[in-house]
């Protein structure tokens, strides 16, 4: 039982970690990356969510 529950916990934590990485990556691309195209496209929303822009 202990082994089963610890396997479940480990798999749960791995899923959580994967989700965190995906969320952070998307936030970086949409909100922080400074390529000119991305910046121009996301410009109004970066200002309107308070991300540091320019």
């Amino acid at each position: 039982m202990t082994t089963l529950s610890s396997v479940k916990t480990t798999s749960g934590l791995a899923s959580v970690l994967a989700m965190v990485v995906m969320g952070l990556a998307l936030m970086f691309v949409a909100g922080h990356a400074q390529s000119a195209t991305l910046h121009d496209a996301a410009h109004d929303m970066r200002h309107a969510t308070g991300f540091p822009c320019h």
Binding site: M19, L24, M45
Partner: peptide
């Protein structure tokens, strides 16, 4: 702006549900 609003809120929600998990 609509597209990036959705992307930013999906990223916020991803981190929120990671917290739920």
């Amino acid at each position: 702006t609509v597209l990036f609003t959705i992307l930013i809120y999906v990223s916020y929600t991803g981190l929120l549900v990671a917290g739920f998990g």
